[in-house]
Amino acid sequence: MRALVLLLFALVALAQRLTSPEEVARVEVIKKALPAVVRVQGSALSGEGPVVGTGFFISPGRLVTNYHVVRDLADLTVRLLDGRTFPAERFAVDPGIDLALLQVRGVVAPAQLRFGKSEGLPVGAGVVVVGNPFGQPFLASYGILSGRGPLEAQALDPSVGQEVGEYLFTDAPLTVGNSGSPLLNLQGEVVGVVSDVVGGPGGVGGIGVAIPAELVAQSVEDLQRYGIPQRGWLGASLLSLDELPPVLLRAVGLTTTQGAMVDKVEPGGPAARAGLRGAQRDAQGRLLALGDVILAVNGRPVRNKAEVVQLLARYRPGDKVRLTLWREGRRLEVTLTMVARPRSAP
């Protein structure tokens, strides 16, 4: 009888602390995720002192973090939840989506996280982040999936992440040090990897930005198998039509701002091999004539440059992709053949 009374008291106490099924799920997700999350740290090559980010194990000795976290660091180490610290090294990197894989020496991961699907996660669904905000180790935050879509290029480091067509946004409190943190659903699956915070002074009070899990998982598979990403890519820089002067669009007969203009074509890339034409500019860089305008990818209309990048990223080397273009006042179609991209510098 006494044991039953104690059990009832325990259940009442638990109910007072955890008031909803969602709260119970959230606590369980954090509890299971914490041992898989690490503090990534190293010495800045610029001599500015230690730099801290976050990562998480996906296999016994390998973890995921952001490329921008480790890009300029030497003497990489990772700190586990129990306080132990181990040396780490870059295994492979994918600057195009701001991702890096680290190999950790001398440890077997106490826990690992698995990737889920972000695509079916509805806006408003609860999400959890575990990381190292301001370098303070192993803190969790909670919020909702606020939305998904492209991000203005100037909001992020222009040298990384330019091949992410669609980001996830969350109102979960995030700040410096959370880069590389897992964004988890309430089943404990990684649905995104935190890459930045935009808005607010120094990012505080802003919106968290994460790379969708599907894109991360694809990159991880490529990096582990080939050492470089195998996403489809155009091999050209783009401008969304709504970034261009309307007078130039009208001059070539375009009545829409839905699409993306080819600005500069990279030698040897898929765009160059398919004969795509870039824009003409004067010595000061002012636009004189439009390049080819991409209106659709494999028959699917595109609204902007982000959608072109996102759609092409689904293909692999050897795949053929049909582009619908607007060139010199008429529509035409060309076929791109995806090729393996040049090896990215670590």
Results as ranks from 00 to 15, higher is better:
residue 1 M to S: 12
residue 3 A to L: 13
residue 4 L to R: 10
residue 6 L to Q: 09
residue 9 F to Y: 13
residue 11 L to C: 12
residue 15 A to N: 12
residue 17 R to W: 05
residue 22 E to A: 11
residue 28 E to N: 04
residue 29 V to N: 06
residue 31 K to E: 05
residue 31 K to R: 06
residue 34 L to F: 13
residue 37 V to Y: 01
residue 38 V to G: 00
residue 41 Q to A: 10
residue 42 G to A: 11
residue 45 L to H: 04
residue 50 P to C: 01
residue 50 P to H: 01
residue 63 L to M: 14
residue 64 V to F: 11
residue 66 N to K: 01
residue 66 N to R: 00
residue 71 R to P: 07
residue 72 D to G: 03
residue 77 T to S: 06
residue 82 D to T: 13
residue 83 G to W: 13
residue 90 R to P: 06
residue 91 F to K: 05
residue 112 Q to H: 07
residue 115 F to I: 03
residue 116 G to S: 01
residue 118 S to N: 12
residue 118 S to P: 09
residue 121 L to M: 11
residue 126 G to Y: 02
residue 126 G to R: 15
residue 128 V to E: 04
residue 128 V to Y: 02
residue 129 V to S: 06
residue 131 G to C: 12
residue 131 G to S: 11
residue 132 N to W: 13
residue 135 G to S: 09
residue 136 Q to L: 15
residue 140 A to L: 09
residue 144 I to S: 03
residue 148 R to G: 14
residue 153 A to C: 03
residue 162 Q to C: 07
residue 162 Q to E: 13
residue 163 E to H: 09
residue 175 T to L: 15
residue 178 N to D: 07
residue 179 S to Q: 01
residue 187 Q to I: 00
residue 189 E to W: 02
residue 192 G to L: 12
residue 202 G to A: 08
residue 202 G to T: 01
residue 203 G to N: 07
residue 210 A to Y: 06
residue 228 I to T: 04
residue 233 W to G: 08
residue 235 G to A: 05
residue 238 L to G: 08
residue 240 S to D: 04
residue 243 E to H: 13
residue 244 L to T: 06
residue 246 P to Y: 02
residue 252 V to M: 10
residue 264 K to C: 02
residue 264 K to V: 05
residue 266 E to N: 06
residue 273 R to E: 09
residue 275 G to P: 10
residue 277 R to H: 09
residue 277 R to P: 07
residue 286 R to Q: 15
residue 286 R to E: 14
residue 288 L to K: 09
residue 290 L to Q: 04
residue 303 R to N: 10
residue 307 E to M: 13
residue 309 V to W: 14
residue 312 L to S: 03
residue 315 Y to A: 01
residue 320 K to R: 14
residue 326 W to C: 03
residue 330 R to G: 09
residue 345 A to M: 14
